[in-house]
Amino acid sequence: MLDNLNLLVFAPYLGVQLLLDGIFIGAIFALAAYGLALVWGVMNVKNLSQGEFVIMGGYFAWYMSTYGIHPMYALPVAIIGMFGFGWVVYKTIISRVVEKDMFTSLLATFGLAIVIQQGLNLAFGPEVQVAESGFPTHTVPIWGGEITIAEIRFYSFLICCVLAGGVVTFMKKSRMGQAIRATAQDVRAAKVMGIDTEKVFAFTYALNAAICGAAGVLISMIWVIQPFYGITHSIRSFVIVTAAGFGNLAGVLMASFGLGVAEQYGGFIFGAELQQATVVGMLLLVLIWRQIQMNRLRQAVQ
């Protein structure tokens, strides 16, 4: 561990590489996390199948690439396909549990996650898959060309920014977006004002699935996908949303970048096996810090 810290001190360009990788990948985490924040905030459903939606999106890209279609074209297909899937899942499962207590919805989405995993396994087999973009890697001509930027990571970053921007504008400007925000504030009041909350819920859940699908397409071109890899993406989304709170896009973005960078540094300093542990450890610290903050606040009120 000390050796690794030493390395960072003596070769600072490594830190830059880790930082870049972390930010690029963090942008993709932000997508799935924002989707979770949306569903959590609007309908109070903690969607445990979040990661599975991401992986499903990845399979769109992989499947199309086996037919010689460039995986980038899978982006609109996955968004539309997953939107439809999300709608169907809402109508068949989530609409029945949305009014129930937290544990019912947790159980239902957990069950859904298992069904999706096994379904993907049956359909496509358990092998690890990738969708190859074929984009080249560039070396940055400083520090002896040791820093590399893969074009695909850069494009993914841009796509994430565009998608996030699109969703935010939609929420602010469109009627449906306003309805979603109204429902998030108060379901009963929204109903009284004539908003069809059932439709809002269905739309929110479908939108979440679509965002996850887009994230999955990008993940399949940067990392690897496998039917059972959803869980790590679910955990990341939960960590980010817990740290940032929902209804706070800026917070979600910052937390996502922070998590991406922390993962890279954690992996470098503590070793790859503790990469995930670093993230969960950080969540713990955030929660403890929040607790202390709140205690202080309570005392001040007294």
Binding site: N4, T232, Y265, G267, F268, Q275, Q276
Partner: peptide
């Protein structure tokens, strides 16, 4: 050491 659900080893490769 690599984790069981490995999908990123860029930290190791940076080393």
């Amino acid at each position: 050491k690599l984790p069981r659900d490995l999908s990123d080893m860029s930290a190791t490769l940076t080393k």
